[in-house]
Design a protein around this nucleic acid. Structure first.
Lengths: 348, 348
DNA sequence: CTGAAAGCGCTTACAG
DNA sequence: CTGAAAGCGCTTACAG
């Protein structure tokens, strides 16, 4: 079989030494055009593929691949959402043990664009082979994907897709996840009920994901259901002050079933309000399996949780970075992670 | 860091040659008890771990790990359910490229226990390092996990957990998946609707999975809902003759919403019946994303599909077998794969 | 521009 | 029972 052909055989067929074949494989300088062509031809004819295991064994010590991972400061807290990507990173690094790849964790503060930018600059100053991070500050991210990236290392973003080039995204399509929420709620509530989309933020910025989830939800409702637009309410609250939400809830007719779509991880904040509300027949769907949501899912106070699988995203990112760095293949670095639907019974 | 310690350093500390360290690591004969203890002590003190990459590079050619994969004959059909585990196998083998692991596919006929047993015997006669298969014939599986396994190679079963020892299972808990179906349907249908559990088989054996799914569904209903038992009907049909199902459907009151739980992959068979039935408000849930179910999910004729992720099961099996064979670690070979909930909007 | 040689960490056939 | 040496397939510093 073609598979078994190694560098030695290619060298023999091309009439050169294995050192020269290696130079061609890696596009290193110092090969005459003539030789280059001859070797290239043999490689494509034989279907030769570099043995990555041997390659990494040789290189593991002298040129360990070092990935900078830049996450929100909360990554250090074991119970926190931002700890999950770290777990995915660790799992991938563990699987690649012996292949000469490590990572170093850097953090920034969610509310502080400067902290992000200076951490990134620190990373670029040092000799990392790739950067894995999250694109929450658009301007800073624009900078780091362009002029700041002196050594032109691959940059992979998790969590959110942004309009940025010279970089990769591994994320969940928020528009689609809004549609998933739409389908699940509509299935239960039907066209005669009411729907409320709750977007609670603790800053005055509505995250891109939240906006897209609402858009996906509304588009689903419009295209696939007969729910009248007047039955779909939006509540936005920029200071996490729940009394505004409470007031809004009171204004929604409570004689009909109510579907509640929380566009971020804060669904757990609503259960207190619901307890005191006159709405008896509610179904709630939110995002992310934090400890609060998990507990409420188990108590059936929240019915559905959509999971962005941040650990899986990061796991795939590291595997993809490794593939890019060792095989020049970036195909796994632009992935739309499917929306995972969790209910009490399929929790792990 | 401890990580960086290699066989050379262990040899130096123990005052022996690296060959001897290697003998100790692999528990090979021909090491004096004294030397053995000294080396073992150094290994545990230093936390030395074999470099699997170097090990596999050395061994890849001379002792390639060869996994026998024994699946239903339908595995050859690209569009068939049983082709999916094969895809998982291939993905895992691909990822382990260069580590010296291959597989060979064998098949049997679903209705024919002998074909399974003789394929297994053929496998045992040859020199495979592990067997990956499915445990559909209890007696034959009992034999192959006991007396027939002459070389005592690891046997891993996919799809279904059985009461068998000396083997591993990577499967989905069918009882749990029944509960998932229960929750999803109950959420939509509520206590005033009717429920029907449909188990269509083309043999007169009801598969273990189907029985457990029904049990899990019924247990969920009883424990977590107020649905009266009289509202839950079971339809069993041993010859895939749909007229019996049709008759049964006609006997269920059609004034109320109807939840249909199909305990296997044949949900698609019911849509024709439903089209002609008087039941207007139905919600159907079934298993497995075959081409028929996929099409009907897209047309909203089936609302939920529970996925056993046969590809993921097989992928994990191969990865786990590799880990067992190279590190003696079987921890990933007994896995309960979570139930994946699919609706039209989160299909990949 | 090219080749011969050493070495990554482990394994094994051989010699003693 | 133990060690020295060769070699897995690739990479690189060195010599020419």
């Amino acid at each position: 079989m073609d598979k078994e052909i190694g560098i030695k055989e290619v060298a023999r067929l091309a009439g050169v030494s294995i050192g020269t074949v290696d130079r061609v494989i890696h596009n290193r300088s110092g090969v005459s055009p003539n030789t280059f062509d001859r070797v290239t031809k043999i490689i494509s004819e034989t279907g030769y593929k570099k043995n990555n295991v041997a390659s990494r064994l040789k290189l593991a010590k002298s040129s360990t691949l070092n990935i900078a991972v830049l996450l929100p400061n909360e990554a250090y807290q074991e119970s926190h959402y931002w700890h999950l990507p770290l777990q995915g990173v660790e799992k991938a690094i563990e699987e690649l043990q012996g292949m000469g790849i490590t990572y170093e964790l850097f953090t920034f503060y969610m509310g502080n664009e400067d902290s992000f930018e200076s951490a990134a600059n620190e990373i670029f100053k040092n000799d990392f082979d790739a950067l894995l991070t999250v694109p929450f500050f658009y301007d800073a991210c624009h900078k780091i994907t362009t002029e700041k990236n002196q050594h032109n290392i691959p940059i992979v973003f998790l969590d959110t897709k942004q309009e940025l080039s010279h970089c990769y995204f591994i994320y969940q399509n928020s528009y689609k996840s809004g549609a998933v929420a739409g389908r699940l709620l509509h299935q239960v509530i039907g066209k005669k009920g009411n729907y409320v989309i709750v977007s609670l933020t603790n800053t005055n910025i509505r995250e891109k994901n939240m906006v897209e989830r609402e858009a996906g939800f509304r588009a689903f409702m419009q295209e696939h259901t007969k729910v009248a637009e007047e039955r779909i309410f939006s509540i936005q609250n920029s200071s996490n002050n729940l009394s505004a939400v409470k007031t809004a809830f009171e204004q929604i007719a409570n004689s009909e079933p109510l579907g509640i779509f929380v566009t971020n991880s804060r669904a757990y904040l609503l259960t207190e309000i619901l307890k005191r509300s006159k709405h008896l027949n509610t179904t709630m769907i939110g995002f992310d399996l934090n400890a609060n949501n998990l507990a409420l899912l188990n108590e059936n106070k929240i019915q559905y949780v959509l999971n962005q699988k941040p650990d899986f995203q990061a796991y795939n990112a590291i595997k993809g970075i490794f593939k890019l760095l060792t095989e020049g293949n970036s195909s796994s670095l632009s992935t739309d992670i499917p929306v995972e639907i969790l209910i009490k019974e399929n929790l792990m």
